[in-house]
């Protein structure tokens, strides 16, 4: 069963396009990454699903039920962290979580306490006294406190330190194993590749790719720098599939590999290699490579 299905979902802000004819399917029990540059329409999609904005046309369903404008009951099954999280500053974290849970008709206090311990956040402190990262943790806890079946997260790790990000990824995987579906937007490839099975890529309001993370990776271009024990000749690299932009300087080779690294590794292993550096490309670089140079014209990924 699909947790989320959108059909022709379109949103215009006056003459400006938010998203257009979005057809998307997110399987129940999966973690789905939603990617795109600034203004691509990620937040618009999420806000349409949460009905904080209304579509120009199109429809969507949640767990097989078509959601009509003005419906709200379905949201009791959803945990939501908005991109621009703003909480009541004068409340304590605990009071806020309690308030949010009452609005969603369910609260598991023991679970909230466990989450607070896990994320190392003191919920007895007023929100205005918390750091940005700790406010984000409260935002995440309020989204989970009512044990939703679907999590809709708009860049949820913003402000979290790397340790907490790791903890959050672990939690998502645990939740997935319990059958929870996760739909989240991100701009960090490593984040997406750690937890997501499938990704949707948006450009200028259109879904341009819907594929598995493995397929995305296989399309990626890696920058490789190989240092040999002694100088090598360019012929060494001739005929190796996927290798482009080769530059040789004495015993150092710099090149790019599109797709699988296997043929390159097999060839260079015949020589003495002192060092082998492979840099994972940024998501932006992947997009530039595979989806055209117009992709990042607004200034990069978001």
């Amino acid at each position: 069963m699909e947790a989320i299905v959108t059909r022709g979902l379109t949103k215009y802000y006056g003459a400006t396009k938010g998203i257009e004819d979005l057809d998307l399917e997110v399987q129940e029990g999966t973690i789905f990454g939603y990617l795109g540059p600034n203004g691509a329409g990620k937040t618009t999609t999420i806000r349409l699903i949460m009905q904080s904005i209304l579509p120009t046309r199109g429809e969507f369903s949640i767990f097989g039920k078509l959601i009509k404008p003005g419906s709200y009951e379905y949201r009791s099954k959803i945990g939501y962290v908005p991109g621009e999280l703003s909480l009541y500053e004068n409340m304590t974290g605990w009071d806020y979580v309690l308030f949010a849970s009452r609005l969603r008709n369910h609260l598991d206090r023991a679970y909230v306490r466990a989450l607070a311990e896990r994320f190392q956040v003191d919920l007895s402190v007023k929100i205005k006294q918390l750091s940005k990262g700790n406010k984000q943790k409260v935002g995440i806890i309020q989204a989970l406190a009512h044990k939703p079946k679907l999590l809709v997260l708009d860049e949820p790790t913003a402000g979290l330190d790397p340790f907490m990000q790791e903890e959050f990824y672990k939690l998502l995987i645990e939740l997935q194993s319990e059958g929870v579906t996760v739909f989240f937007s991100s701009h960090i490839l490593s984040e997406v590749s750690k937890v997501c099975e499938r990704v949707g890529i948006l450009r200028e309001g259109k879904l341009i790719a819907l594929e598995s993370v493995d397929a995305l990776r296989s399309k990626s271009t890696r920058e490789v720098k190989i240092t040999f024990a002694s100088p090598v000749r360019a012929e060494l690299f001739s005929g190796i599939p996927n290798v482009v932009d080769l530059e040789l300087r004495d015993n150092e080779a710099t090149l790019k590999v599109v797709g699988s690294m296997d043929p390159l590794l097999k060839r260079v292993s015949e020589y003495e290699v002192v060092d082998f550096l492979s840099r994972e490309p940024s998501l932006e670089e992947i997009f530039f490579a595979f989806y055209g140079s117009s992709f990042g014209k607004e200034g990069g990924m978001q």
């Binding site: 949460m50 949201r75 959803i78 621009e84 999280l85 909480l87």
Partner: peptide, 15 residues
Amino acid sequence: EWKTLELVATSALSR
């Protein structure tokens, strides 16, 4: 304006 309404308005509550 303070964006605190976003989470409240997207809860299991009609507008």
